[in-house]
Amino acid sequence: MLKVDHASVFFRARDGRTIHALDRVSLDIPDNSFVVALGASGCGKSTLLNAIAGFLPLSSGAITLDGRPVTRPGADRGVVFQKDTLLPWKSVLGNVALGLQFAGIPKPLRRARAKELLSLVGLKDFADAFPYELSGGMRQRVGIARSLAADPEVLLMDEPFGALDSLTREQMQELIISIWKATRKRIFFITHSIEEALFLGTQVVVMSPRPGRIVARFDLDFVSEFARTGDAGTIKTAPQFATLREEIRAILHGSDQIRSAAE
């Protein structure tokens, strides 16, 4: 269980003002869950992910992974970034095997493991290609395979499909569900797309900016349904899906209006 307990983050801005980026956020990511944080930009969802990853210390509150406090980045929490962060001087295989290399695993072993992961993300024919020879979607697949290589307890994904075109994006959503189903990893996923959140999450937390906080939580089942049936069209056109989409849209826009009324 990954537990975020009353996490608050304050930044000091360049002009000396204090910015309240995250306000007493509490969140559980249980085993086998797919938790999606949804919100407009500036709502603190990336701040939350950076804190869970260990890139950013908290001002107050605590984050624990299976009871151990999170203080620094580590291989137990794999991160997939929005911008791909592959190493341009390493082949696709070398990039996927990077975490295993850091762990000191011998070369033949890490090559074998990296090849397995590449076939999991559908790139086994591109093992010897270099990142600059791949499309954006393919690079992001490599990024996912790389973060899985170290066998993390939880996968943190920071708007991983935000820079992709909508067709590729749908393919990648289905890919990540199949990976989730195959590996049973806990996933914490950030997006600003309501539809993506509903389709992917077993739990969706809706966040609102200034200060960044959770304003609503939904427990969902669409992703398990897709994992069972493999039929995205039926799910996305179902009436419950549309109702929830409108409900969340109302929450997101509502929090906007509350703020503009206060200003």
């Binding site: 990853a53 260990g54 890139f55 620094r72 980045p73 580590g74 291989a75 929490r77 794999g78 991160v79 970034f81 911008k83 962060t85 190493l87 001087w89 990077l98 975490g99 290399q101 850091f102 762990a103 790389r146 973060s147 290589a149 170290a150 943190l156």
Partner: peptide, 24 residues
């Protein structure tokens, strides 16, 4: 900084960061 963060979250220690990420 993303490249450094990515390597850290893959478990890179300090000298590994230097040799595998910073120098190249």
């Amino acid at each position: 900084i993303e490249r450094i963060n990515a390597a850290r979250s893959l478990g890179a220690r300090h000298w590994q960061l230097l040799v595998s990420i910073v120098l190249p």
